[in-house]
Structure formats: C-alpha cells, structure tokens
Measured scan of single mutants.
Amino acid sequence: NQASVVANQLIPINTALTLVMMRSEVVTPVGIPADDIPRLVSMQVNRAVPLGTTLMPDMVKGYP
C-alpha cells in the first residue's frame, strides 16, 4: 500500500506547507503520494485542512 500525505496539524487556508505540517500514512482513500512531500513544501493549501486529513490534489494550489 502506498503512503499518502496527511496533515500533521490544522493547516489554515492559504498557508504555505512546511515539512512539520505533513506526515506520511497509509490511508483510504489514497491522497497525494508521500513521495511528493518535498515538492509540496512552500505550496499553499486552498482550504483549511484539519489535523489528520489526507491531502488531495485539489487542496493544494499548483499541484501537480
């Protein structure tokens, strides 16, 4: 099973992602692959992302 990117904390709308905000976890449904975490750094979320939420491609501005 492939690990996905999961919010490690509440991420407010328009926040630029940092490594501490994300963790990898095997979840269903599958979200953004954990391998993409380095690419996500400094990209902004377009909505508030609660703790434990799987990051989906449509939540991150400019992804992929």
Rank of each mutant, 00 (worst) to 15 (best):
V30D: 15
M59P: 00
A48G: 09
V5E: 01
A3P: 09
V5D: 00
T18F: 03
I11V: 07
N8L: 06
V6W: 02
S24V: 15
L51T: 10
T28N: 13
G31H: 01
M22V: 07
T54Q: 03
M59W: 10
G31N: 00
N8I: 09
V5P: 01
L40H: 01
M59Y: 08
P12D: 11
S24K: 13
P64F: 09
Q2F: 15
I13G: 13
V45D: 01
L17V: 03
A3S: 13
Y63I: 06
Y63G: 04
L40Q: 00
P50V: 07
M59N: 06
Q9T: 11
N46Y: 07
L17E: 01
V5K: 01
V45C: 04
T15W: 05
P38W: 15
V60S: 01
R23L: 06
V26E: 08
T18P: 00
D36C: 05
V45T: 14
A16I: 12
D35Y: 14
Y63M: 06
Q9A: 12
T15G: 07
S4Y: 03
V26S: 09
G52C: 03
A16S: 10
A34W: 09
T15F: 06
S24Y: 09
M59G: 03
K61H: 11
I11K: 00
I13V: 14
Y63R: 05
R23Y: 06
L10V: 11
T18K: 11
D35A: 11
M56A: 06
A7Q: 01
V27Y: 02
G31S: 02
Q44L: 10
N46R: 09
T15K: 05
T53D: 09
M56K: 10
S42A: 15
I37R: 07
T54G: 02
V6C: 03
T54Y: 02
M43W: 12
V49D: 02
P38I: 08
E25W: 07
E25F: 07
A7R: 00
S24L: 06
N14Y: 10
I37L: 12
T53Q: 11
L40Y: 03
L51V: 10
Q2E: 08
V27S: 05
M43I: 04
T53W: 09
P50A: 08
Y63V: 05
L10P: 13
I32M: 04
N1E: 07
I37K: 06
T28Q: 12
K61L: 13
P29Q: 05
Q9V: 06
P38H: 15
L40R: 00
R47D: 06
A34E: 07
R23W: 04
G31C: 03
I32Y: 01
V41S: 03
Q44N: 08
S42V: 03
L10F: 13
D58E: 13
